[in-house]
Write a protein that binds this DNA or RNA. Structure first.
Lengths: 300, 300
DNA sequence: TTGTACGCGTTATCAA
DNA sequence: TTGATAACGCGTACAA
């Protein structure tokens, strides 16, 4: 079969009812987390002879639904999905698992639809980084939160609250501000936080992710204040830019590549029939201490 | 057709001989250029009803060849490809165009195989940024080059040489050092440059891309020298990190998103039969002046 | 071993 | 208009 002729995989797929293709749906492509995750996914998929079809939902619910539809039509062997914001309607996720197409969420999960979820322990990580702030004497805390329709939005907020509760700190409602996942949202949310009355104006802020934290830092600086002296800021992801910005960012390192690998491995297991049941796969994180939280690693 | 049943696209593709799928082959996924380019590609592909299958060649020639083979087998309607390093064997590119599968290169092109190429004007851009250095009085120049098997490697070197020639500057052979496209390579190459005898030791360095420039800056600093006071460094890409590193990097901005859009638009034209002939599509660049070249934008 | 007919799920064609 | 049927290119099962 060396001759100038390439066998038609799609005819093959039709008869075998197998495409050796997995669909990957992501809400974002430029945030460095996702390229890294894709690299991990591709790594294990490629070794197992599978290929990736990439769908970019662009944080758009409708596009996400269409993407799933398209992937079903293309008869992918399985789907890897990181949920876009505002996923109010879960029926189409449920339909995917009902139809029997293996589905695993990564990073941004939808619970209760019977699919596996591969993520960090968002709540526990949020507790840890918040307690780190508290242990450094901060008591006026705020959270720049993600959308409440997405697992990481809910769970990071919940961890933040839990840490406060455990340490007897009350968090006023105005101190939880939805910022979304981007720099602009972080900037706007921080501005709002800074305009709070002095009694509740935060001295330390936990942002839902690094881009939001970048925006928050900028807002602090634009207000003529300093990070961390006036306001401490921490994030989530360990974005590629986190160590490089004017005030290097303390953050929770999220092992994107590893997350991608694990998600793909679990999906392949499902596809190949071993391990039928959904799981919760948690990968551990570490806090990366830099300057933005008022703790100087060098002084340790 | 609202009922619980998804039409089988692949059977459809088989009879129509059309998949509404385009293959995207990239050598790298983490370098911020490619995610941005993919975003541009997806933007126009999505609007036209096409989907992306993503192949990561990981700078590996064999994987790139396999990727093309796979895409042919999957009967994609067209291929978008950015060549991996060391593409010594062009026969498989030629076969793609001979078979009649629309092929367009983006960023890293292979010339002379009859395919369209969408890229920046690498040579002219290299001339401009090199002349910028020269106009600031630098005469001992070096180039950290990309691999010579890849268009951007060849052309950026060629532009560097041309700028020197035009200005009556001789570039010794030892001052052109292959660094490859990564930070580590840039670091090693710069170390080599610094160990050159004083007469030829460079005062200004043009790196083939930003990651290589990052490595070079680190090497300069690790040698106890300063950028730009002792050695000026410039890059190519305007990587997301370029403005953030310790010495903000002067670089050639490469409009990745726009490049992706144009490549996808041309490919769709080829697929849909309008515009049969290969083209050279050049998108213009601009030099982004920052601190690493000894020119302080604020002082303009 | 080598070969031939059928089926996979769709669209297209042609007859009714 | 509607409905039956061939064809897309490959696996497979069965026959020779």
């Amino acid at each position: 079969l060396k001759l100038g002729y390439t066998p038609n995989t799609i005819a093959r797929s039709l008869v075998l009812n197998k495409t050796y293709t997995i669909g990957v749906v992501i809400p974002e492509i430029s945030h460095s987390f996702f390229p890294e995750a894709i690299r991990g996914i591709d790594e294990v998929a490629h070794k197992a002879g599978y290929h990736l079809i990439l769908m970019h939902s662009a944080e758009n619910n409708r596009r996400e639904r269409d993407a799933i539809q398209t992937l079903e039509g293309k008869r992918v062997d399985g789907i890897l999905l990181s949920a876009s914001t505002g996923a109010d309607d879960r029926t189409y996720y449920e339909r995917v698992v009902r139809i029997g197409v293996p589905l695993v969420f990564f990073d941004r999960c939808i619970r209760g639809v019977g699919a596996t979820c591969v993520s960090i322990d968002d709540e526990a990580s949020a507790v840890r980084i918040t307690e780190h702030l508290i242990s450094h004497g901060y008591t006026r805390l705020a959270h720049l939160s993600g959308p409440m329709g997405v697992s990481i939005g809910i769970e990071r907020l919940s961890g933040f609250r839990e840490a406060a509760r455990r340490n007897g700190i009350t968090v006023p409602n105005e101190a939880v501000i939805e910022s979304g996942f981007h720099e602009e949202g972080g900037y706007a949310a921080m501005k709002k936080a800074l305009s709070l009355p002095p009694r509740v104006r935060p001295r330390a802020v936990v942002a839902v992710n690094d881009p939001a934290a970048f925006g928050a830092i900028k807002a602090v600086q634009d207000a003529g204040l300093r990070v961390p002296d006036d306001v401490a800021v921490v994030g989530f992801s360990d974005d590629i830019r986190a160590p490089l910005i004017s005030v290097p960012l303390t953050t929770v390192r999220q092992p994107a590549y590893q997350l991608g690998r694990l998600a793909a491995q679990k999906l392949l297991k499902l596809i190949e029939g071993r391990g039928r049941n959904p799981e919760e796969i948690i990968v551990s994180t570490e806090i990366v201490l830099r300057d933005s939280c008022g703790h100087h690693p060098a002084s340790d």
